[in-house]
């Protein structure tokens, strides 16, 4: 464990807590894409298949449970909690996210480190996570004004993988044979997808005005 990875995990944890806070306290999911949340449930479910078979550390298992639990509960809230479900703009959140999964599963079947069920599912979850934010970013372009909590959520979610990139660079230089192109490239693509969001988020913060992505 290094400081970059810890910062990444804490940023990721903060992003799901911000979203849970928004949904649980103000009972609103306005501006939040249910499609992205559903993709994240699949990302964690396929990423943590080994949660009961391989034990790395208390920290590792605890964080896996938190990410699994929070992503499932966010989807549950947005789908079945009456008050929250009412604030979900279904008309705008129309990204066909199931079509995102197909190329990811095909790519995972083609490019992976080992051709085992577990490894292919794990690689699939990496590819899927890289594109999971797309429905949310599309929704952001459509809903003109977004509230601060949603903006912070996306900012933290994008930032965590950026810290992971620093972690991979650090581990590359400190651990022999630590080379994982698949993880590195999908993590880089994932972070780059946030590039324009980060730009407009920074502008809105600098000019102290509402965050608005150009249509």
């Amino acid at each position: 464990m290094n400081i970059f990875r810890l910062a990444g995990d804490m940023t990721h944890l903060a992003s799901v807590l911000v979203l849970l806070l928004k949904i649980h306290t103000i009972k609103s999911c306005a501006g939040v894409s249910l499609k992205t949340q559903e993709l994240y449930v699949i990302v964690f479910a396929t990423r943590y298949l080994d949660i009961f078979t391989s034990f790395v550390s208390i920290y590792n298992s605890l964080m896996k449970l938190i990410f699994l639990g929070s992503s499932f509960s966010i989807v549950w809230y947005m789908r079945y909690h009456k008050a929250v479900h009412r604030t979900y703009d279904r008309e705008q959140d129309t990204f066909r996210h199931w079509f995102l999964m197909l190329p990811c599963i095909l790519l995972a079947l083609l490019i992976h480190e080992k051709f085992t069920f577990f490894e292919v599912m794990w690689t699939f979850s990496l590819y899927l996570e890289a594109v999971a934010i797309l429905p949310q970013l599309v929704l952001l372009q459509r809903t003109r004004n977004i509230d601060n909590l949603t903006g912070q959520y996306i900012f933290l979610l994008g930032g965590y993988r950026g810290f992971y990139i620093l972690n991979w660079i650090y581990r590359y230089f400190t651990e022999p044979h630590y080379v994982h192109w698949i993880t590195w490239i999908s993590g880089l693509v994932q972070t780059l997808l946030y590039a324009d969001f980060f730009y407009y988020y920074f502008l809105s913060w600098k000019n102290n005005k509402k965050l608005q992505l150009p249509a």
Partner: peptide
């Protein structure tokens, strides 16, 4: 072992 080391990440 390298891929195992990667699996220590979330």
């Amino acid at each position: 072992l390298s891929s195992a080391s990667l699996k220590d990440e979330l």
